[in-house]
Amino acid sequence: MDDAALKRQYDAVVERAGLQIPKDREETMFNTYKNVVSWADIVRNRPRPATLEPSNGYFLETVTRAIAASGEKSDV
């Protein structure tokens, strides 16, 4: 993807996120965006079978043990 296309992406992402980036930091933050895109390519550029679970697998036990330890009700 050329820089102009990446810049359009960047502008859209910044606008959607509501980030306030000063003019004198635009170029730096755009370069940062390009770095993040390149890292995304690295983590995607590999076999990704559906059965491969993320490493932050959710364990219900961590919730129940906290309830047991604190004796407190959820504040959610």
Binding site: Y10, V13, V14, A17, L19, I21, M29, T32, Y33, V36, V37, W39, A40, V43, R44, R46, R48, L52, E53, P54, S55, N56
Partner: peptide, 20 residues
């Protein structure tokens, strides 16, 4: 702020990659 540049699926792929 650079965290806003990461897509949800990028994050999940990074988590899966970490496990590997």
């Amino acid at each position: 702020m650079a965290g806003a540049f990461v897509r949800g699926s990028d994050y999940v792929e990074a988590l899966r990659m970490r496990r590997e």
